[in-house]
Design a protein around this nucleic acid. Structure first.
Lengths: 332, 332
DNA sequence: CGAGCCGCTGACAGCGTTGTCACGGACGTC
DNA sequence: GACGTCCGTGACAACGCTGTCAGCGGCTCG
């Protein structure tokens, strides 16, 4: 392996100073056409590529974007990261990943770690409610909050109409005759879930129903917990005839439990699609929260900011679609 | 935001030279106890952290590991990346991701890009067969090939007993009375799939059966293609009574197609587990290829090498387990 | 015709770190 | 007492790049 060419090599080959090489490879316009061409030839000949590390040390920034999510293993975030990586690659931007495991303190640690690595931008699915630390830890850094974190003005946010989704899912079940509808959620730390639950409650209120506390579970952060919760719900003296599962991880658990208990008569709407949802019998009706467009919007935004575009912070809210497949149309 | 403290600040505070600070924070043992303590106090007082970028520029390496896989969106690789990231985090190592989309040239480009970023190690699920370019592009770099790439000596490899898995899956179906067993695979570029197919063929041969060409599909790289292939298989004059799907992505397609066609009598064994495989009716029998231990083994290995441990290259082959759940035990 | 400006270019410093090398003092050896 | 050795330490350069500033030639303008 021959060592990479540096600006000095190119400068020597082109008969110019290293500064001029720097100007050319950075697309500065204050270089004459002839000089530029001479340098470009040398660059091509020597197969020169800018050293991103030296660049980063000098400038204090870099063409790397830090992506901080709960877990890369979660299909939702996996898709998100995948899309971001694809779009980043197209602009020669690298992606550093960091997982929070839903922990506020770990999130903070990860963000600080990424900042030390001079990332040029951050894509963050935030935990908890207080993200002011971002303001003084990383002033001026392009930051896009994705999926969650509405309460923090000053940053771009990209998410979906959580409350509306919860509302429509619940209305859908009500419209099919259900009166005892369970809600499966998780930590009240997650603004998305809270909003979905608000939609659920609003739909019930519209229908003149009082929410039944025993039908609301907020401890279903993993599939197994949701399965367990489902079993318990089915054992209630007055069990639910329908379930609104507020995230796809929980839905996996619900589906497992319903199949195991042979209770395929229980209606189900899932917030968030998942693999095989349409292959099951009955196929699962979902409020489709596709990570693709979400990630796309977030990535486009953050990449634009990285390129130096000055944009006013914006809250992008993507619409949702209710996909009827069968499980949500069962009658009690 | 106050700017981070540098070695100079620490040196001044501790009354030593910057070099001594460097020695202390790098755990060099040629520093007297008193000096070390003085420096450590200053480090703590000033909240000093090494600047990884400057470090990387100076040393030509870094505490970052590059992970190159087909796609982060694939649950198998998502789990893998997730495990690697967790273990890396515990050692303050960062993870840069890069996807190949199964393209040999894109893989090469991504690897070179990561090398420019001074990654300290590479974890690679290789495409194609020729990886000698790694030898001169990154001599001496810790590289672990994961899941695939057996034909390349000189690197660590971590994988599973692909042929044995294919053998056992097919034997299992044969033992349950099947004689027409379809094989769903994909590109012959993927050594894993090829080996699984060899296992399939060997099992057939053991049973004295000639392989039926029309039952072997090697075009099922995505779920939709596998679904399509399944439908075509079922329409054959002599359709298969069992299917061996050689990867979980294909299995999703098979399951969808079987459910859609209401042909739940067709036996199925999947190489690789997937969500809901145990919730379906019948639940899907799998050769369990858990990405967890695979990733763990690979990560442990690569991290050890990054810490400078000199280890002879090793081929780690993890055992597989056949998980009977129902679909593989159906009789024709 | 000199002052001022503009377009292009280069010398140099410095980002924060680690590798090289040299030095002073303590100690052991003959 | 002269010498070599070892330990702890520091001065300095360098990694490859970009920001600052200055310089140079040619132009316009009063």
């Amino acid at each position: 392996m021959t060592p990479r060419a540096t600006v000095y090599d190119v400068a020597r080959a082109a008969g110019v100073s290293i500064k001029t090489v720097s100007r050319v490879v950075n697309g500065s316009d204050e270089v004459s056409k002839e000089t530029r061409e001479r340098v470009m030839t040398a660059v091509a000949d020597l197969d020169y590529v800018r050293n991103p590390i030296a660049r980063s040390l000098r400038t204090g920034s870099s063409d790397t974007i830090g992506v901080v999510v709960d877990s890369i293993a979660d299909p939702f975030f996996a898709s998100l990261v995948s899309v971001v990586e694809q779009l980043a690659l197209a602009q020669d931007v690298s992606v550093l990943i960091a997982s929070t495991g839903r922990s506020v303190s770990r999130e903070k640690g990860q963000v600080l770690r990424l900042l030390q690595q001079n990332v040029g931008a951050l894509l963050l699915a935030p935990n908890g409610h207080d993200h002011r630390y971002l303001l003084d830890a990383a002033p001026g850094m392009p930051i896009v909050l994705v999926d969650r974190g509405w309460e923090l003005p000053g940053f771009d946010t990209v998410g979906v109409e959580d409350e509306d989704g919860g509302l429509r899912a619940t209305r859908h079940l009500l419209a099919h005759g259900h009166r005892r509808i369970a809600f499966l959620g998780e930590s009240p730390e997650l603004t998305t879930i809270v909003h979905r639950q608000q939609g659920y409650l609003r739909a019930l209120a519209e229908a003149g129903l009082a929410p039944a506390p025993e039908l609301v579970r907020t401890d279903c952060s993993v599939a197994a917990a949701a399965a367990e919760a489902t079993e318990q719900l089915l054992r209630l003296p007055q069990p639910p005839t329908a379930i609104f599962s507020s995230n796809p991880r929980a839905s996996l658990g619900v589906v497992s439990a319903l199949h195991r208990a042979d209770r395929l008569d229980v209606a189900l709407v899932s917030f968030g699609d998942f693999d095989l949802a349409d292959a099951l019998r009955p196929a699962v009706t979902v409020v489709d929260q596709d990570p693709g467009p979400l990630a796309q919007a977030a990535a486009v935004r953050v990449l634009a900011r990285m390129r130096g575009q000055r944009l006013p912070p914006e809250d992008i809210v993507l619409p949702l679609q209710l996909v009827e497949r069968g499980s949500g149309e069962l009658r009690p």
